[in-house]
Design a protein around this nucleic acid. Structure first.
Length: 298
DNA sequence: ACCCAGGGTGACG
DNA sequence: CGTCACCATGGG
């Protein structure tokens, strides 16, 4: 939560966010469209290029038209009480270990189509390479735009533009075997699949609906629901979360389905937000990967 | 050369 | 229902 917002001369200033950590927020693998600048960060979201900086307990966002204020407050999830979430984490000795590594992160509310495509690309891939593929995708299919200071950028392409790309073009930007998944999923959205409708659905129903997209399985579906459709109880399980759960909760063993469900029920309706803390903990700790298959199989 | 990355798909029991 | 090889690509 924040204390106050001030808007003047196309600058939005949000005070009372001392804990907010933009470095962790943008570097924790949820968005692939932010880059460091001299003073802060530059990113592209909702078709707009935007600068974000923190100083003296306040977040500074610009350029921001007055009518865009609610959009950015929502994008940065500024109405949510992260102090209360971190307090909940610290009440659990296992989760409390994550807080020093992840305090200040926020789960962004991104665009559903962009999240669909970028997380199809994320499958069996790594964050640095995903960002490169997304950048090249925007370069070859996104609309060009320019900031007032002259910085040039590309908007994320429309569903129609992605669906119209030749498979060879998607291969050439590094999409690999995911190229047909990207193209066909974009085609489904261009043909009228209403991603926004998933926002109001129960979690299980929304997951089932997303499974209709090629290249979208359980993990990618939960990323889309958590990062762009407001489902704070969606809990993406990737290799890093798996390692963290093993070390923090299950004594080195990969949990079964029932154990996982019991844990998620215990974590409550914000389990997805908590997931981001656990994910960041695993990444910062660089939890080992050596011979994990052999260990997990005993 | 081998292993790994914010996994999904299809085939096989 | 669960398991498993395979998938393109670049970095360590």
């Amino acid at each position: 939560m924040y204390e106050k917002t001030f808007w003047k001369d196309n600058v939005l200033l949000v005070s009372g966010v001392e804990r907010l950590d933009l470095n962790r927020t943008f570097a924790c693998g949820q968005s692939f469209r932010w880059q460091r600048t001299e003073r802060g960060w530059f990113g592209i979201a909702f078709g707009r290029g935007i600068y974000a900086e923190t100083a003296e307990g306040a977040l500074r966002i610009f350029p921001c038209a007055k009518e865009e204020v609610p959009l950015w407050l929502k994008y940065f999830d500024l109405a949510r009480d992260y102090a209360a979430i971190e307090a909940q984490l610290c009440a659990d000795t296992r989760l409390c270990a994550c807080v020093p590594f992840a305090s200040g992160i926020r789960v962004l509310n991104q665009e559903p189509f962009e999240t669909l495509i970028t997380f199809i690309l994320s499958a069996n891939n790594n964050a640095g390479r995903i960002a490169g593929i997304v950048m090249r995708l925007c370069a070859c299919a996104g609309e060009p735009a320019v900031m007032q200071d002259g910085r040039e950028y590309r908007r994320f392409p429309t569903p129609e533009a992605v669906a119209a790309l030749e498979p060879e073009a998607l291969r050439s930007i590094g999409a690999g075997y995911r190229a047909p998944y990207v193209k066909e999923s974009a085609r489904m959205v261009a043909d009228g699949f209403d991603l926004e409708a998933l926002r109001a659905m129960p979690l299980a129903e929304a997951r089932k609906a997303l499974a209709a997209f090629p290249g979208v399985g359980p993990k990618v579906a939960d990323c889309i629901l958590l990062f762009s459709l407001g489902h704070t109880d969606a809990f993406p399980v990737d290799v890093w979360i798996g390692r963290a759960l093993k070390t923090l909760f299950f004594d080195g063993q990969m949990p079964g389905r029932q154990e996982m469900e019991r844990l998620l029920h215990e974590l409550g309706p914000m389990s997805g937000i908590i997931q981001q803390y656990v994910f960041h903990y695993a990444r910062e700790r660089k939890l080992a990967t050596k011979h994990e298959k052999k260990e997990g199989k005993q």
